[in-house]
Design a protein around this nucleic acid. Structure first.
Lengths: 202, 202, 202, 202
DNA sequence: GATGAATGAGTGTTCATTCAT
DNA sequence: TATGAATGAACACTCATTCAT
């Protein structure tokens, strides 16, 4: 992990916001430089190209998301007891975090409409993040509901990923306007289903 | 509703694909003109500006989506009997349609990352589409499960919208790779929840 | 042979002078555009890139040189009788032409220090021109001195090419300051040698 | 003559090659610095500007060429007896040297297409070198053929300079591909002419 | 002596747009 | 309706050069 210069950090800090608002194609290095308090040419003392800067920001965002996810499931492991609470911590915190974390905004927008030339790299890296989330939730749910059959477990994993997707969309699209209701509703039907499953098992 | 010339239609037809693949900022009128078999300057015989063309395509996409949605729920009204099938037709057909309808791809991508200058217009118009979907589903569900309490009805409406969101994300992000599983899982937990509700009511 | 627009011709006309004076790397499209009475961006209505323009100018220069050479040897064929006059017309006219033909200046300078990226194309095309000159002179000399042995013929061809080279250098380097003396001297020793050969044959 | 630092020497050593390959305008200080194993800014610890570096390299090249020329004619003075051998040593060695001496390549290329801003300085300095060559050859030929009339002497001097030019062109343009033949041919006709002159004198 | 950072000027190139034809 | 030509503005990027460290 290389140490980035203070200026490079400042550039990344403003770039993440600018990219997430305007997208890759809609962002200009002039604007980013100005936000960072320097001239356009100075950016090249820190990054080789626009792509290089974009990928640096993307790497930051990915790393932060990985850490955040890890933290959520670590914390949950110390608390959770019932199946309905598996994955709940990540789901809850994600919603709150989005408004505060430019990296999260950047990540979602980038993944949903990646710049053509970086598409493969971005898609691949994000796929790995989702796989990680899948493993986290599966572990958490298995721990809370060890009696779940394999097919049923797989079903809840998919449903959970779908719920996460749905909430992220709501965050991106409407800045979370209807988030609370959507969150509550989806979580409710998930809980209902888990309750049913628990009942049948008993 | 004005009649558009054949050339204008051809331009829109290629523009929708180009915009949905590259986004507003990443698309150039040169490329679109070339795809339409004409020169860049000729576009201005049909559209006043890039924005004008983009909004024309957007209007097409919105209209098509409105019609499609209407058709789905009309067809469903003639068939549906159980609550678990409310909204199912739209949900099913949407997945199949996406791969074939450039307008659907365009619509989703545009809505999630709209060009800065057209953001308000786009967001507002799409909001109306979602409201329409909400009404459609609510009516369908009420018809199939008239015994549902108001809060419970509202909950399922939100859950349904969330499921639609989730599937659309899957379509955009991964071209539907995991769509079937996600669809099945989310629909299953919705059905489970509805079954529980029905049981409690009985 | 495509017809070039009047503007494109004007651009080429000023570009040939600018390129020959500053070289490829030292020339800027801004300057060329200004000389042509238009803005930099307008150049791209006529040429795809700087390379494209440069190669167009190069093609013009090559073509003109081919024509000029052909004309010289055609004219000579109607006149020449003694071996010492073979190739003389081209040699004489070349010197006069250089000061007047920007294409000739451009060609020589470009060939001696071609832009790195176009080196192969330029070198190859010029090689063909030299081969043509070689054939012209050989034919002319053979006609005037059919009794020359093959090795001796080859020797004079090489000497002739060398003399041409030498005069071109003088033109490039010193704008022809010492051209007349150099020309006279080299032509004299060539003539002396041919006279010797003729004497031995007799 | 100041002593240059080791770093400055290394810079000059790589610059001469880079300049001769890309020309003045096509060379960047970044590239030269990298080849010299340092950063661009460090060049300014040794040279005031790009021009300063270029002129330093040019001075090196000139000096080397002067020395080389002097050495050739000194050596020749100890050996030569017949007029046909006057200037031959320099001519022969030049061809072999070019491929090995970056300074010689640099010198020729620079002289034929000098950077606009340094043109006068370069042209003047090279003119002095040619004058020196002229004196060397004249002295050598006079010594070997004291019976030559003044006009005839002047003629051979011009022819000799022309032959040198021609060979240098061949070296620059084609990296010496046809050099041997051209050299042999030109030298042959010079020798023939001198033989004729000697005969007439006798 | 060497360097990271910064910068004003300038590069070639693309853009959406206009206009006469 | 269609287009070739033109253009101002903007683009990503490179340049030689400066300066504090």
């Amino acid at each position: 992990m290389k140490k980035r210069s203070a200026s490079a950090d400042r550039i990344c800090a403003v770039a993440v916001g600018h990219f997430s608002e305007h997208g890759y194609d809609g962002s200009s290095l002039s604007d980013i430089a100005e936000l960072a308090g320097m001239r356009k040419a100075s950016l090249y003392s820190h990054f080789d190209s626009k792509d290089d800067l974009f990928l640096a920001v993307f790497a930051d965002a990915l790393l932060e998301e990985h850490s955040f996810m890890q933290q959520c499931f670590d914390d949950e492991a110390a608390l959770q007891q019932v199946p309905q609470q598996a994955g709940a911590l990540y789901c809850d915190r994600m919603a709150q975090r989005y408004g505060q974390s430019p990296h999260a905004r950047f990540l979602l927008r980038t993944v949903y409409l990646p710049p053509q030339v970086l598409r493969d790299h971005i898609t691949g890296a994000y796929r790995a993040l989702l796989d990680q989330l899948e493993r986290h939730y599966a572990a958490s749910l298995v721990h809370a509901a060890p009696w779940l059959t394999q097919p049923r477990l797989a079903l809840y994993v998919q449903a959970y990923l779908g719920i996460i997707d749905s909430m992220q969309v709501e965050l991106i699209y409407a800045d979370g306007a209807a988030l609370q209701q959507r969150h509550a509703a989806l979580w409710q039907i998930l809980s209902d289903s888990l309750a049913t499953a628990a009942q049948q098992q008993a």
